[in-house]
């Protein structure tokens, strides 16, 4: 995160179905770079993305951006890529990109062609450029969607679970593409990505936005979030351990990796990572909820 003004100011937005608010009082400012939208299943992550994209009604609150003069145009500058991006079955990848570029802004055919050629080269889409939509693998469709948001010159891209179900090599390829895209001129400046894989968040993202029960509970740089678990992470011998010790699901030769409120006899301190911080924050929050 740097000193440039935030890309998007989300102010108190909410979406409801009948009288039930699925997300409410959501306020945060999205900075440049990669922000991971994390939280438990059912917390409202997808609802939040779709509300920001304008696919679901914004029933209260507003979106602003210092980068967009007319607030009514703001959703045009936001690109949304669902988990399984759609394609037109009979159009080739190149035709699809041409169509996207025209749709966004009528330009001279020559200009559009040059733009489309440029992005095909930069994202190495040459091998799929002349294949029809129905022949494309889901990961190829996602790369095509990336090319199309670049052509639309959006400010912010919202990604819904782009790496769910991908194996580690496919995930690496996805993040390589995203980082290459970001270095291109006129590329989107901010990326909000939902994922359950905290390892990739720790490696590739700048900040986390933690959502729980339709509200934002934490929004900070990854390192700052990890520091919340400082002093609470240990290698432990086999359990049971008693109360306020939670397994993190990992283990190594040194012992089982746990987060704990206090050090115990036979526990050895261990440096925290994002999984630890997430679990620590969630468990202590659940306890506060119980007390309240």
């Amino acid at each position: 995160m740097d000193d440039t003004p935030p890309l998007l100011l989300v102010e108190n937005i909410g979406h409801r179905v009948a009288s039930r608010w699925l997300i409410r009082h959501v306020t945060f400012s999205l900075s440049q770079g990669f922000t991971a939208l994390i939280g438990p299943n059912g917390a409202g992550k997808s609802t939040l993305l779709r509300t920001l994209a304008g696919l679901l009604s914004r029933d209260e609150g507003q979106l602003r951006s210092p980068w967009v003069r007319n607030a009514r145009n703001i959703t045009r500058r936001i690109g949304y890529i669902p988990q399984f991006p759609g394609v037109y079955h009979q159009l080739t990848a190149r035709q699809y990109l041409m169509r996207t570029a025209f749709w966004d802004e009528p330009r001279l055919g020559r200009q559009v062609e040059a733009k489309v050629d440029a992005i095909i080269e930069r994202l190495q889409l040459g091998a799929i450029a002349d294949r029809r939509g129905h022949e494309l693998h889901p990961s190829e469709r996602r790369r095509l969607a990336l090319a199309s948001v670049w052509l639309r010159r959006v400010l912010v891209v919202l990604f819904d679970e782009p790496t769910a179900g991908l194996d580690p090599e496919e995930r690496l390829k996805f993040w390589q593409d995203l980082y290459v895209l970001r270095t291109l001129p006129e590329s989107p400046r901010g990326y909000l990505v939902t994922t359950h894989l905290l390892t990739e968040v720790e490696r590739y993202c700048d900040a986390v936005l933690l959502v729980d029960q339709g509200r934002v509970t934490h929004h900070e740089p990854v390192a700052q979030f990890i520091a919340r678990a400082e002093g609470h992470t240990f290698y432990a011998p086999e359990g049971p351990w008693g109360s306020r010790v939670w397994p993190t699901g990992r283990a190594s030769g040194e012992g089982t990796w746990v987060v704990a409120a206090m050090p115990h006899l036979h526990f050895t301190p261990r440096p925290p990572d994002l999984v630890d911080a997430y679990l620590w924050v969630r468990h202590t929050r659940a306890e506060e909820g119980h007390r309240a």
Binding site: I38, G39, P40, N41, A164, G165, H196, L198, W246, P247, T248, G249, R250, A251, V275, Y278, L279, R282
Partner: peptide, 17 residues
């Protein structure tokens, strides 16, 4: 653990181990 959120991943991993 496919499709589980991080807390579910942690508890299912601890159980399977």
């Amino acid at each position: 653990t496919l499709g589980l959120d991080p807390e579910e991943q942690a508890s299912v991993r601890a159980l399977v181990r």
